[in-house]
């Protein structure tokens, strides 16, 4: 049997002031079930705190959950900070109450996937698996 390759580490973050963490905790839980090592930041983290944690924990991906409507501002800030810190290769995905009209803009910013309410765990895991496999470092 081949040695089990550990799956990469993922940070689940709640930027801004929104305290609705049911979705974030649920996604953290199902990603753990799928074998990922997951770091959850807790609620009400600033973009700086999230990027610090991501760099410190050397994560391959960051999942951001936001239900308050502040996603356009805060996702952008986090992606900018990642680039400033030389961590622009970290995969960023998101979820929450995000109107369809905002999806093209978020994609342009570099958000690799957005999982809106109702997305199944299976879809989330398959998408993350695929996106991370595509980015695997040699």
């Amino acid at each position: 049997m081949p040695a089990r390759v550990p799956k990469p580490r993922i940070l689940i973050g709640k930027p801004g002031l929104d305290g609705h963490d049911r979705g974030a905790k649920y996604v953290a839980h199902v990603l753990r079930d799928a074998g990922y090592e997951v770091v959850y930041t807790g609620i009400r983290r600033s973009p700086e705190q999230i990027v610090d944690a991501a760099v410190q924990e050397d994560v391959a991906a960051i999942g951001l959950s936001l239900l308050s409507g502040a996603h356009n501002v805060l996702f952008k800030r986090i992606i900018d900070l990642l680039k400033e810190r030389g961590a622009g290769d970290v995969l960023v995905f998101g979820g929450g109450t995000i109107p369809p009209d905002d999806l093209p803009g978020l994609e342009k910013l570099g958000v690799a996937a957005v999982f809106t309410p109702g997305t199944s765990a299976k879809t989330i895991i398959e998408t993350i698996d695929r996106l991370l496999a595509g980015r695997a470092k040699p």
């Binding site: 801004g16 002031l17 929104d18 600033s46 502040a70 501002v73 805060l74 800030r77």
Partner: peptide
């Protein structure tokens, strides 16, 4: 949310959340 958490609208913690 800034009003609920006691930040003025010009506080850096309020970024993106004012009036949302």
């Amino acid at each position: 949310l800034p009003t609920q958490i006691g930040y003025d609208s010009d506080d850096p913690m309020a970024a993106g959340e004012v009036g949302k």
